[in-house]
Design a protein around this nucleic acid. Structure first.
Lengths: 171, 171
DNA sequence: TATTGTTATACTCTATAACTATA
DNA sequence: TATAGTTATAGAGTATAACAATA
């Protein structure tokens, strides 16, 4: 029989004061809950995000979606194959650039997405169960603002964590 | 030449309104920045979290740390081997239970941890660069409260995302 | 020459199972 | 019988490189 961990911090508990730790715990809990929520959907939570992206107007390309949800374009190929096989979306050539293919949800895909959203919201409530409605909205808003900023950065650029330290030491 | 993504949401941009999407973006950005910050440390950000845990008093066991940072105990073995080989921590038998081993940071490990913390804070600043100091503290606090709650739950239990829906539909 | 999407391959990471020693 | 830690193996997931079509 193991003792349950306390919700409270104890003196010297530096791990659980770390933001990176909290982020990891919340992220893994979301993955677990969202995996339950998405059930048999190809790609699970990742498939849900692709479906969300495939309803955007004007339509976006495979590589844009891949970059936005943080996967490689080679992985996107297989994921779209699976979702297309289920009839949830289609790939169609971009009239403006024939190398590119636009990802568009089918009617069936939109229907499935409606159902998924209700379940995904449940998963989010599970993750944020500690917070009341006001705090949940604050957290969602702050996370979204942070994410939108990060999403707009050059994905190939380094974060300059080391460089900043060196510069700060010189000053 | 590709157009940079806007920080602003557009009509129908349902993906970037999703909390799961924001969580993923922030988490991946943290991993990227923390990887830069931890440099040659075995295990990278994960190694940092083990070091944080290995300063706790009273000392904790390998399996407790593994559960807390979300990795398998079999992975923990290799990670501790690497950190111990660098002289950053030691494993010693728990006098109260000779099956268990306590993980304790060495003086060298504590020193290294001090340096790491400054760099890790830079990584966190990178991730939260969009927010001012007040909002950063709000976000950190809300995330920590959520994480402490989730950390106290039974890790083998399901999230009951589906069950809750069925119950709600009946009501 | 650079980019999109595809495919095949190689690699890394993770999960599973088996084993020892303790409880 | 159950648990902590270790080890070896298998599987899943990911990254790399090469290719065809297009810009």
């Amino acid at each position: 029989m193991e003792m349950a961990r306390s919700h409270e911090l104890v003196e010297g508990d530096t791990l659980r004061r770390d933001f990176g730790w909290a982020l990891g715990v919340v992220f893994r809990a979301y993955l677990k809950a969202a995996n339950e929520a998405t059930g048999t959907l190809p790609g699970g939570p990742r498939g849900h995000q692709v479906l969300e992206a495939s309803t955007r107007r004007p339509p976006v390309s495979q590589s844009v979606i891949a970059q936005e949800i943080g996967i490689d374009r080679t992985v996107m190929t297989y994921l779209l194959d699976d979702l297309e096989r289920e009839g949830l979306l289609t790939r169609r050539p971009d009239p403006a650039d024939r190398r590119s293919r636009q990802v568009v949800a089918t009617d069936k895909g939109v229907e499935r997405l409606e159902e998924l959203r209700a379940l995904i919201l449940r998963a989010q409530d599970f993750v944020l169960q500690e917070l009341d409605e006001v705090d949940r909205n604050s957290l969602r808003c702050l996370m979204q603002r942070s994410a939108l900023r990060l999403d707009s950065l050059d994905p190939t650029a380094p974060c300059n964590v080391i460089q900043d330290i060196a510069a700060a030491d010189q000053a």
